[in-house]
Write a protein that binds this DNA or RNA. Structure first.
Lengths: 149, 149
DNA sequence: TATTGTTATACTCTATAACTATA
DNA sequence: TATAGTTATAGAGTATAACAATA
């Protein structure tokens, strides 16, 4: 199963592996993957609903429900936008911030464990390939696949 | 956003990118991602429910519902197992096989487009890195993350 | 007894369409 | 008119617990 693999199939398999690792991490924290992903999007500061729906590739109405459930659990708060009275910004609570950081940190550890036998030069090559793929997508769609940072 | 990226974050981003590509492909085929993934698992032949739930990381009861919906759409059939009267095997119909191959093929094309500017040697390095990651996971868990082929 | 698969139940997640309030 | 966000509704996805039938 190792060497005759097509590169596109390899990417799909890698994706499923990371998806399952993420699902495991979320289960340990008693979060759904969608909830954890939402929390991670808010780590760097509050974000409005429209922007969040773009980041998460969700319809606004779907996002309303997701935010409702996470807010009900006390992990985020809706705060009014000072410049637009229609809008609100979604902000992590202290508990939510801890969980968001915990999930991000746990993902780092779990993936790091999978990378354990890749040494320095191989890592640099891998990260540069992945960066080029991400950049290619950004160029093709005109926007980054994730937060612009 | 390109060079200071941690390798684990890069993998997470790549994963989300592939997830979104897969979601797009599925929407074009009027399938949910879960349904398409199920069809892809059956391309090489019928599989029983217990084995499928292991491959998809789903509880058996969740799988029952998923198979119900896909069967209702005429994409798979439950066929009795000759050697165990409790068991059944899930088999693609002709329509289901076409859709499964279409989704697999479309993923290959879409990902190939993202890889367009990676030349031969870089591809070989990428595929070997990814293979090592997948192998590390198999070694750690004692079973492949996906079908054993 | 153990295993295969289903049913019952209760959530979460998601999209479409229609809506309110503000810009 | 256009935009920010919500509500209503319907369906898909998922897990837990209890179950039936067969091994």
């Amino acid at each position: 199963m190792a060497e005759g693999l097509k590169i596109t199939d390899a990417l799909v398999r890698l994706t499923h592996l990371v998806d399952h690792v993420f699902a495991d991490v979320c289960r340990d924290l008693d979060l759904t993957p969608q909830q954890a992903q939402l929390l991670c999007m808010l780590i760097d500061g509050p974000v409005g609903m429209t922007e969040l729906s773009r980041l998460l590739h969700l319809e606004k109405s779907s996002l309303t429900g997701l935010v409702d459930r996470v807010q009900r659990r006390g992990l985020v708060a809706r705060v009014p936008d000072d410049h637009d009275r229609r809008a609100c910004r979604i902000e992590l609570t202290e508990v939510g911030a801890r969980l968001g950081e915990a999930s991000h940190g746990a993902m780092g550890e779990r993936l790091e464990a999978l990378l354990g036998d890749l040494d320095g030069p191989d890592r640099d090559l891998l990260i540069s390939s992945v960066s080029r793929i991400l950049a290619a997508h950004t160029a093709a769609t005109g926007r980054p696949w994730d937060r612009t940072e």
